Simulated scan of single mutants.
Amino acid sequence: MEMQSVGEAYIRPGQILTDRTSLAAASRWTQAVSEADGVCVVHLTPGADPCEVTAELRDQGLRASPNHVLRGQPLFFGGPASRPFPAEPIGLRRSRSRSDVVVGLLDTGVAKHPWWSGSDWYARLSPEAADAAEGSQAGHGTFIAGLLTRLAPGAALSVHRVLDGDGLGDEASIVRTLNRLREHPPHVLNLSFGGHTFDDRPPPLLSDAIVGLTNTVTVACAGNTASDRPFWPAALPFVVGVAAVDATERHRAPYSGYGTWVDACARGDWLTSSYLDTGEYGGYAAWSGTSFATALVAGAIAEAAAREPAKEWIRRVLDSGKTREIADLGVLFPASL
């Protein structure tokens, strides 16, 4: 995927996102426009800077953003979060009954695996939602699906591939997918990806798309940045942003993002889950990252949602003052795998 770096944020060169109300104001920089699912991608004329155009449109009170590139979050330069490691097969607790809870999983897709062989949700999976076969993050979605299945075995997954095999996806594609989810919104939404924005402000179209899922609890990773710089969409006030703690569940994992914008944390180090059946891997792996801490929190919410509305449950857990908190990491969700 073609992209450029702007102060640790990544954007698609020559592109901005707007809605229809902004098209007229953007016309003097516009070479072409592609529109789908409520998002307009404006392809700028040569020489026009996406960040400068965005700033000018926002000064007019319009909704605009560079087309940021968001990334899945096991990647970190060194440390345990860098790659998956082969693991021995582990068992799966089967649910005695199915719930009506649906967990949305936007990621690299989900591959075939014994844990969901014969399940209704996997039988409905389209070929486009299969996990990427190649790339540095192939298997990322399959790994997360396993964690969700272990925590909420009665829930169904609604899988949408928005990241490629290297864990990269642009904001336009993600927002379009989120907008389509309004037709059949999940109870819980797992977003184990994100990124910085060029100006550290929330991306407006991504924010709008998540807000549009009125009754959905959206859970997103705080990023493997080892930084308190806001990481989006986790830093949005209506998203449960999740950091990672180490295996002791007492300290921040050294790669994890942190800050006052983080709401919750869970173990991120050396988790074992489903993976691709390829090469040295026999369908299982051990992996580390805030992506996977996020799945533990999303899975806990999904399991609770079988008994009461997900939004009510998570609001009570985060605001009760009775649950253990870690400074700059939020409420701790103990691992129960």
Rank of each mutant, 00 (worst) to 15 (best):
V6H: 05
A9T: 07
R12Q: 08
P13F: 00
T18S: 05
R20Q: 09
L23G: 05
V33A: 08
E35S: 14
A36K: 15
D37E: 13
C40A: 15
P46T: 06
A48Q: 09
D59W: 03
P66Q: 03
H68I: 08
L70W: 02
F76S: 15
G78Q: 05
P84Q: 01
F85M: 14
L92W: 15
R94Q: 14
R96T: 13
S97I: 09
R98E: 07
V103R: 09
G109L: 08
A111D: 15
W115H: 04
G118Y: 07
G118W: 04
S119I: 02
D120Q: 13
A123N: 15
R124V: 10
A132E: 14
G139L: 10
I144S: 10
R150C: 11
S158C: 13
V159Y: 02
V159L: 03
H160C: 11
L163G: 04
D166S: 14
E183W: 06
L189A: 02
N190S: 10
N190G: 01
T197Y: 04
D200A: 15
R201C: 12
P203N: 01
P204Y: 08
I210R: 01
V219R: 07
G223W: 06
R229I: 02
A244W: 05
T248E: 10
E249M: 09
H251R: 15
G257W: 07
W261P: 00
W261Q: 01
G268P: 11
D269W: 01
L276G: 04
T278E: 15
A285T: 07
W287N: 03
S288Y: 03
T294R: 01
L296V: 01
A298S: 05
A302E: 00
E303W: 00
P309Q: 10
K311R: 15
K311Q: 15
K311D: 13
E312R: 15
S336W: 03
S336A: 13
